[in-house]
């Protein structure tokens, strides 16, 4: 397959997944900010996770719910906004339109047309949750249409690769930001605030019910970290994401991706054979920092091996 085509499939899926992740984060942060309106910390979380705090503060000064919502959802000048992710997903899909199934194209195109309507109408904190739910639904539809209709060839593989690399990156980042935020809490307020913050984190990755099902116990940082890093049965955990990434990389035709395959296998081996006690002994923050670096490097190797071959 042409490298450029593979790149478009990969970025189409990454952008759609990124839109969904931003919507999840935003939803939970807006709810949290209602819980204790005096603090701006919760509103800063989605900005921190998407790496756009500095840009936001430069343009808006104070993080009000309305300003953060607009910036992350609709702002055409923010390259990471949901609006721009969907635009980019649609542009990439347009290039590979003859490769993807018509159901998939119609889904991406339809999403974009509706997205423009949302942007035209604008959002306030009351309509936010309807919008954010819509984003999540469209992303589910996108993955479902692809999974249900695409031939299992490299077209499918590169699109899956984008989905899971983006998801792994998002899970690692959100866990990292929350870990830092929670460790900054005042000790005396610890228990009650911590509970809400970990619960919010779980909800943002659809992990609240999963946690209850698996642990049937109170929320502790260690278990949350275990669920989101090491559990293979949790679809947004790092280990589950890397399981998919490895499967997909092994199926891509040709030998160009050796370096990327090796790196992905190494990460997966570490996730498979680590215990949560090991991770806490090394320090959760340090482990997450190094995982984020690894994901970043893997992204570069994928680019180098497949998407920009010379």
């Amino acid at each position: 397959m042409l490298s450029r085509m593979a790149g478009c499939l990969y970025w189409m899926a990454r952008n759609m997944e990124r839109a969904e992740n931003t919507a999840r984060l935003l939803d939970v942060s807006l709810q949290m900010s209602l819980l204790h309106a005096s603090s701006q910390d919760d509103l800063l979380v989605p900005l921190d996770v998407t790496g756009s705090t500095a840009d936001f503060l430069q343009r808006h000064h104070t993080p009000t719910p309305q300003a953060v919502l607009h910036y992350l959802a609709l702002d055409g000048d923010n390259p990471g906004s949901i609006y721009n992710c969907m635009r980019s997903a649609r542009e990439n899909a347009h290039v590979v339109r003859v490769k993807i199934t018509s159901e998939m194209w119609e889904q991406v195109n339809g999403t974009w047309l509706e997205m423009r309507e949302w942007q035209r109408r604008g959002l306030d904190t009351r309509s936010a949750s309807t919008f954010l739910e819509w984003v999540r639904e469209r992303s589910h539809l996108f993955r479902g249409a692809g999974y249900g209709t695409m031939l299992r060839n490299d077209t499918f593989h590169f699109s899956r690769l984008g989905t899971f690399l983006e998801r792994a990156d998002n899970t690692a980042r959100i866990l990292n930001v929350k870990t830092k935020q929670i460790s900054d809490n005042e000790p005396e307020a610890e228990n009650i605030l911590d509970y809400y913050q970990w619960a919010a984190l779980l909800r943002s990755v659809s992990g609240f019910e999963a946690y209850r099902d698996i642990y049937r116990d109170s929320i502790t940082p260690q278990r949350v970290a275990e669920l989101l890093i090491l559990r293979n049965d949790m679809p947004r955990s790092l280990r589950a994401c890397f399981g998919e990434i490895n499967k997909v990389l092994a199926r891509i035709e040709g030998q160009a991706g050796r370096a990327a395959r090796r790196r992905a296998s190494e990460i997966q081996a570490r996730l498979t054979y680590s215990s949560i006690e090991d991770i806490f002994a090394d320090g959760l923050e340090q482990t997450l920092d190094s995982l984020i670096d690894d994901i970043n490097l893997l992204g570069k190797l994928i680019h180098h091996s497949y998407l920009e071959t010379a």
Partner: peptide, 21 residues
Amino acid sequence: VEGQDLFVKNGHVYMRTTSGP
């Protein structure tokens, strides 16, 4: 292909693919 997909090397034209030139 687009122009960016093609390149010239050793007197031939190649396209960039996921399994190499």
